[in-house]
Amino acid sequence: MAAGVLSNRVDRKDLAAGDHIYSWRAAYLYAHHGIYVGDEMVIHFTRATGQEIGTGTFLDSFLLSSSPGSDEGAGPPCQRCGPLVVRGRDGGVAMSCLDCFLHGGGLYLFHYAVSPAFFLAKARGGTCTLAASDPGHVVVHRARYLLDKGFGAYSLFKNNCEDFAIYCKTGLLVETAFSVGRSGQLASLTAAFSAVASSPLRFLTTSASGLAIVSTGMYCVGRYVSDMGVRRDVVKVPVQNLVAQTQTSAVEAEEVTSETAATETTVAAADGASSPAR
Rank of each mutant, 00 (worst) to 15 (best):
A273M: 05
H20F: 10
D163Y: 13
G105Y: 04
V234H: 04
I213R: 15
G34W: 10
V138A: 12
T176V: 09
Y28C: 06
R80A: 05
Y145A: 09
S198F: 08
A269M: 09
S249L: 13
A131W: 05
A131V: 06
F151L: 03
D134H: 14
A191H: 08
A17P: 05
S155C: 09
D11K: 12
A187E: 06
F110H: 14
E40T: 05
A268D: 12
V251W: 10
E255S: 11
T265P: 04
V230H: 14
D227K: 00
Y30A: 00
V139M: 10
G4D: 02
S65T: 09
C128A: 02
K236F: 08
A261R: 04
E72D: 00
A212G: 07
A262P: 06
C161V: 00
V138C: 11
F58Q: 11
L204G: 11
S194V: 12
H141I: 01
S198T: 10
G106Y: 05
F45L: 01
G54L: 05
P116A: 00
G104W: 02
P83I: 10
A187N: 11
G106F: 03
V256E: 13
C168A: 02
S215Y: 12
R9V: 14
D134Y: 09
N8L: 02
Q79A: 08
T248K: 14
S188F: 12
P76D: 15
